[in-house]
Design a protein around this nucleic acid. Sequence first.
DNA 1: GTTGTAGTTAATATTGGTGTTAATAAAAAT
DNA 2: ATTTTTATTAACACCAATATTAACTACAAC
Lengths: 106, 106
Amino acid sequence: MDLRRDAFQAIADPTRRAILLLVASQAMTAGAIAANFDTARPTVSKHLQILAECELLKQEQNGREIYYHINAKKMKEVADFIEPFRQMWEERFNKLETIMKTHKTK
Amino acid sequence: MDLRRDAFQAIADPTRRAILLLVASQAMTAGAIAANFDTARPTVSKHLQILAECELLKQEQNGREIYYHINAKKMKEVADFIEPFRQMWEERFNKLETIMKTHKTK
DNA sequence: GTTGTAGTTAATATTGGTGTTAATAAAAAT
DNA sequence: ATTTTTATTAACACCAATATTAACTACAAC
């Protein structure tokens, strides 16, 4: 069977989503990231590994510390999947807006 | 039994993403959907169940047939998560554009 | 009522992912 | 050089998810 290791699989886990939002504001070390969660450090480390493997995070060694940077562009894969659906729900919204406008002008 | 049941988990599976894209164009019965895949019908049925549970699909009974409709608006949950990251990668693009403009005007 | 079709549910096997503790690696501080 | 700090890898247990076949329910047509 396939070993699914893509952005969709990565953001399926709530802890990983929290890590991404946390790192989005600024690059952080694994320890600093783990400090924000109840789970043990190796567990966070594994999540970071998965996120790095999916290229949602980039590692940057700085002496003995490793900084994790966000790679926002990789989210585009997910965004591209959602785009057609976004068009669907916005189309419906626009229709509703048009109806409301015609009501007002009456 | 099944714990994590949200839109993120739902779209983590490639088969489910394919189902969503398939049903997006028009509502279909479970059999018609299953005909598009190699997997057995009960497997597709379970995927449909999960998608319905997450409210990405809506069921509509019509005699003995059950039609599955897309619920595009539910994708907004995922879109909302991605939005801040989208701003990040577009901001970088805008910066680049600004630099290129200043180069031109020189 | 019996037959055929649409679809789900049950029971089961297998694989994948999460999380823990313990061991290991590497760099800074003393 | 030894200790401390930072972080990953290893070994293991456990739960969740995917998939299959077989059995079951519901509806329609005859």
